[in-house]
Amino acid sequence: MTVEDLRRSPLASYPGVTEIPFLTMVNVRVPPTGDAAARISARLGGPLPVVPNSVVEAGRRHILWLGPDEWLVVGPDGDRELPGMLPEAVDVSANRTTIEVRSRDLLEHGCTLDLHPRAFHAGRCAQTTIARTQVILWQTSDEPVYRLLVRGSFATYLADWLSDAACS
């Protein structure tokens, strides 16, 4: 048994929603231009996106624009290198968990963003609210597939809300 076996994700025992647990995440806050940004881009193998609410793929990781000087780098479960590789970064892997949703209709019950394909599509992300909680909404595919990155303490509420919305 390894220490990883002791991990428990917020929705580990929640049936009916698709949780992608234990993604590795770090928050990066540096000026968008300058040495630090350049060094980080080089280290990650992809530029820190400067287009608001866009996502850049960098190998097995994704870089999400959160603000003009703020990004979220998302790696797979077990990406042990990521938390320590950027001196400016803050490890936020356990801060949020990830729920996958495959219905725009479902989200429109509680999301005020315009999710029509003309306005939002794969490769876009947004910090916004769904129902009464904040999320990072990230569309990964045009099918559509969305990822909702939600604070661990709100995960059960959001799962409850999504499950209930799915009954409509």
Binding site: P10, H109, A131, R132, S153, F154, T156, Y157, D164
Partner: peptide
């Protein structure tokens, strides 16, 4: 709408809640 009962306001819980 559905903002009733346990969905009326978010209930935040810690990892130790269970």
């Amino acid at each position: 709408g559905r903002d009733r009962g346990k969905l009326h306001d978010p209930i935040r819980t810690t990892p130790i809640h269970s």
